[in-house]
């Protein structure tokens, strides 16, 4: 147990020195800045392209457009960037044999898995919260309307989905022997979940519902309580995957 903080420190140091955290933070901040910008510029762009020839009644952008952009970027590009950045988190150590020394000197293997997971969760939470606050600030400044009253309700499911998603990545990375295999596993899982989402009966229980309803939540058309089953399953599946990672790692030849 005493080794956990040490391993965690090593993980955080590693993510800093390999520039992973820097890239994640900068990219999500770019998305955060682009969301209100694109929302604000869309009418101007439309006007510039066919303003003279076509008399279009373009509605004034609102805070809804800004948050729509934010959740669209984060749940598509954002999630994808996380997957390619962290797809090699365990498989790289396995293929390079950097864990051999630590484990033969008595480091429990579950400490490796848990410390990696904690470090991923910390990075995701910090980066996402920062970008959320940035978008919030700009949206409040440029679109001071009351159309998006429940901002936190849209943010919480995305954060929780991230926890689940990181567990999938870590499991895939342990399962595969290279970072591409882990990435493939992650893509298959998310693709599978989207397929399941086609069935209406399963939609409420699907972790994907955490990133599909953010705008409805922000506008107050839905409440967090309605997503309860999806949230519970996402957290449960995340814990199962983390336990699975420990079991896999215990059986793996280093």
């Amino acid at each position: 147990m005493a080794t956990l903080p040490t391993m965690l420190k090593k993980e955080l140091l590693e993510t800093w020195r390999t520039y992973r955290f820097l890239i994640l933070a900068v990219v999500v901040l770019i998305f955060a800045l682009m969301s209100p910008l694109i929302a604000k510029l869309t009418p101007d762009i439309m006007k510039m392209s066919f303003g003279k020839t076509l008399q279009l009644a373009i509605p004034k952008p609102t805070s809804i457009d800004s948050w729509t952009q934010f959740y669209k970027n984060m749940t598509q590009m954002g999630i994808f960037v996380v997957a390619i950045l962290f797809g090699g988190t365990m498989s790289q150590e396995l293929s390079r044999g950097t864990l051999v020394n630590l484990v033969t000197k008595g480091l429990p293997r579950w400490v490796v898995a848990v410390s990696k997971y904690i470090s991923l969760v910390v990075q995701w939470s910090v980066a996402l919260t920062a970008s959320f606050l940035v978008t919030w600030g700009y949206t409040a400044y440029y679109f001071p309307d009351a159309k998006t009253p429940y901002i936190w309700q849209g943010f919480v499911p995305l954060l929780l989905f991230g926890f689940f998603f990181l567990a999938v990545i870590l499991f895939g990375s342990t399962l595969a022997n290279n970072s591409y295999g882990g990435l493939l596993f992650t893509i298959l899982v998310v693709g599978g979940l989207y397929l399941v989402n086609l069935f209406k009966a399963a939609q409420n229980y699907n972790p994907i519902s955490l990133i599909g309803n953010n705008m409805a939540l922000v506008q107050g058309h839905k409440t967090l309580g309605e997503l309860g089953p999806g949230i519970a399953i996402a957290i449960g599946a995340g814990l199962v995957l983390l336990a699975g990672t420990v079991i896999l790692l215990n059986r793996k030849k280093l």
């Binding site: 820097l22 901040l29 800045l33």
Partner: peptide, 23 residues
Amino acid sequence: QLLADNLPIFIPLILLELILMVT
């Protein structure tokens, strides 16, 4: 005019892209 209106967004946006590129 468009650029000037959105300067509070453009400046940090360009800075971030530069940080990423220079690193």
